[in-house]
C-alpha cells in the first residue's frame, strides 16, 4: 500500500451483517484479492474508503481474520463484538461438552 491505513477512524464494513463501524488500523500491507481464488476463504471485512480487504472468513472451518485491531487499544470499541463471535465459535466447535460443566 502507498501509505497504509493508520488511525482510529477507519471505516470498515462487515459484509456478513452489512454494518459499518469505525476501527483502529495500522497496517502497510493488504491481502491481494485475486490471490483468494481457489481457496476456501471469502472476504468478510472491507475498508469503506478504498474497498481493500480488511478481513477474511473460511467457508467451512471456524476461522475468521482481521487485518486491523479489533482489540482497539487505543481506538473505538465497536469491533469488540468480534471477540464474542470468537468465543461463540470455540463453544460451537469444541467437539465436546464444556470441560468444566
Amino acid at each position: 500500500m502507498l501509505f497504509g491505513h493508520r488511525g482510529a477512524n477507519q471505516p470498515v464494513v462487515d459484509l456478513k451483517t452489512k454494518k459499518v463501524y469505525m476501527s483502529s488500523q495500522n497496517h502497510s500491507y493488504e491481502v491481494d484479492e485475486p490471490s483468494l481464488q481457489g481457496t476456501s476463504l471469502q472476504v468478510r471485512f472491507r475498508n469503506v474508503n478504498d474497498d481493500t480487504v480488511e478481513g477474511l472468513m473460511h467457508e467451512d472451518l471456524p476461522i475468521f481474520t482481521t487485518q486491523y485491531h479489533p482489540e482497539a487499544n487505543p481506538g473505538p470499541i465497536e469491533s469488540s463484538l468480534l471477540f464474542n463471535d470468537f468465543l461463540q465459535m470455540i463453544n460451537d466447535y469444541s467437539g465436546r461438552e464444556k470441560a468444566y460443566a
Partner: peptide
Amino acid sequence: YDLSELINPVTKSTYSSFEPA
C-alpha cells in the same frame, strides 16, 4: 441515504462514514 453511500465532500474520494481527525 446511508453514511457509507455518501462521498465526503471535503476529500471527494472517501466516504462520509468516518470520523474526522
